[in-house]
Nucleic acid binder design. Structure first.
Lengths: 375, 375
DNA sequence: TCCCATTGTGAATCTTTTA
DNA sequence: GTAAAAGATTCACAATGGG
């Protein structure tokens, strides 16, 4: 395909020094790159969502779904063929020591992973991006889809010398090894690109914190980072800020223009400031179900209020049964007192040798464990 | 294959009442099960160690990547064929409303997921088991592999009525819906099965807390839970404790014997601790006409939305009149809001001393009466 | 200016029963 | 089988607006 068009010559020195935006078809553009020229690939390919109907929130507002044409494929086979083609083309552009990241959801990531293995890539990790603020499951028919998966792979099992900044990452993580589950918010607020009408420019813009972690983990300053599905240019913006060179491929001119403007506005960090970002503190929320599954209180045991007047039975699922009513420790506590609300952790007690003890003390046990494990 | 051997007739009543251990080949034993007889499948299939051995041979580490891929394809193909065969056999044993869980790591889970999709299974979630205490990465060349992945799938996209105990799970989780990332410790200490020499009986024994969450999420008391790779019998032990029936298939007699002894020692929880939680979806239907005929609201009374802006009149036949339009509480609620749909039970309110009260509370009165009458 | 209530929104494979 | 009706359902933030 010959529709691959270079972006107009960059005006800012940043462009010449650090980046190149290619407007055109991903596979054709990849094939035009010099072989073995790239240090790191980050790819956020279409997820091939298969949405059936309009989805409404409980307040009857409509969810703005990702129903763009670029995400539609005729069949799994068509998606697989596309995936195989771009992965092969990307592989050609990778240096022998280069690694590749692909992000996806359960709709597509299994197919990507299988094809990676079939093509001889060597998976180093699958990394889970846990979202602090995912969209809820509005119909209550599944678990909240609160994460996406990234696969990190080398060109092959024999690939030596790939970049992994072990010491720097550990230092930025309170001297603990970085785990395969990462916690970041989704991209919202100031960071989210909007058009003049206030609408989001790209439906699936990724947070810069996520890309920062990827680039800091698996690349060095001066490395060439390639993103074949550039979209709103998060990879380019982060690469520029962190002193990496970048190549972005995007076929949609609107997205490409927005990405270019965005990256032009980025100021590279001063040398020396490019260090691993500390990981976000996790809120150690502990559910009563966890107290039960860990055996700190047995299913079937009775909880009581401080005066021992009100009783309820602990159920295996971490709810309480009060007569025929079943609900959370908070809701049953409120019902039993005929109150609007109740903090079940302080209201309910277990019997011990030394009298009644609030279940909050059981939660404290788990919290201490979690703090110790650095989870 | 005819090596499938039933376990000796169970001595303990537990066996007859709740469980069945089949010693033999997984696929053959699955094919012997009655079709459409199982409510839930939990599978912890092997990682295909043969594959890993082949890939680590030194001669492979120097060959060209393309030849490398070909060689890998043969090994992966064997694993894929095995996976396809047991998934098809398990599918046959599943009721139309049954769901299936498969756990794995990046070595095999992508292939499992792809084959699930190719066979027409419908993925409901991928669920990440985050380990509080994973094994560290000793060589510091990768992220600590701190999670495993479970895929939860229905038989197909049209599968209706699968079990998901949404309200109970939410009640045990601080009244927040459960997310797709779960945090549990790995199986250690007392819970870990050891032989006389103190060595672990099974290399990959799963924690009971993990299985508890799975069974509490996606099965009901009395359901049949099938585990085609029974191993040390965690699924059976948890199923018995939670009042589920179980079928385990295991070809290794040492594992099977350990599992049997382990399950025999399990004491089921008291009924009240595991009984199905009453859920709104399964509550008996009550028509608004019944609320009217029982006198809980008078014909001619006015209903209002929560803000008191919209008004409609109750008719003796249980319909509402909104201006000149007459219809069900749902229909009129939708019309009055100019919405596609509306739950009239929560939309409409009656005036009381304490302000507006949703008519859902009137329905609750009738439902309590029905429950009391044993209806 | 601050506080609080209200509104908006995010990669979503999101219902069940009766006629 | 299809079509219509009944009925169940959201969390974390950010932006906005009124007092």
């Amino acid at each position: 395909m010959s529709q691959v068009v270079r972006a107009p010559a960059p005006s800012a020195s940043i462009q010449n020094a650090s980046g190149q935006l290619i407007i055109g078809d991903c596979i054709a553009a990849l094939s035009d790159l010099p072989p073995a020229s790239v240090d790191l690939v980050f790819a956020d390919p279409p997820y091939n969502l298969q949405l059936q109907n309009e989805l409404q929130r409980p307040d009857l507002s409509v969810v703005d779904a990702v129903d763009d044409a670029w995400d539609q494929f005729e069949s799994f086979e068509a998606y697989d063929n596309f995936t195989r083609a771009w992965l092969l083309a990307a592989r050609r552009a990778m240096k022998p020591s280069a690694t590749l990241w692909v992000i996806g959801s359960y709709h597509n990531i299994f197919r990507v992973g299988t094809i990676l293995q079939d093509l001889g890539f060597w998976i180093l990790n699958d990394v889970v991006w846990r979202k602090t603020n995912p969209m809820p499951n509005f119909r209550g028919r599944r678990f909240t889809n609160a994460h996406e998966t990234m696969i990190w792979a080398a060109r092959g099992p024999d690939a030596k010398g790939y970049t992994f900044n072990y010491e720097a990452l550990k230092g930025g993580n309170e001297d603990l090894q970085l785990r395969s589950d990462w916690l970041f918010p989704i991209c919202t607020g100031e960071e989210r690109l909007k058009d003049e009408d206030g609408r989001k420019v790209h439906p699936t813009q990724k947070p810069e914190a996520l890309l920062s972690r990827v680039l800091l983990s698996a690349s060095k300053p001066g490395d060439v980072v390639l993103d074949p599905f550039f979209g709103s240019g998060t990879t380019g913006a982060v690469a520029k800020r962190l002193g990496r060179r970048w190549i972005g491929i995007e076929r949609d001119r609107t997205y490409a223009a927005a990405a270019q403007a965005r990256i032009d506005a980025v100021e590279p960090l001063p040398e020396g400031a490019i260090a691993a970002a500390p990981s976000k503190r996790e809120a150690p929320r502990v559910a009563f179900a966890e107290v039960v599954t860990r055996g700190l209180v047995q299913p079937g045991a009775m909880l009581r209020d401080a005066k021992g007047r009100i009783e309820a039975m602990v159920r295996a699922d971490g709810t309480l049964a009060w007569g025929s009513v079943v609900g959370s420790i908070h809701r049953i506590g409120a019902l039993a007192q005929d109150a609007q609300a109740c903090n079940g952790w302080t209201f309910w007690h277990v019997k011990t040798d030394k009298g009644l003890k609030p279940i909050d003390e059981l939660r404290a046990v788990i919290r201490r464990e979690l703090a110790h494990a650095g989870a």
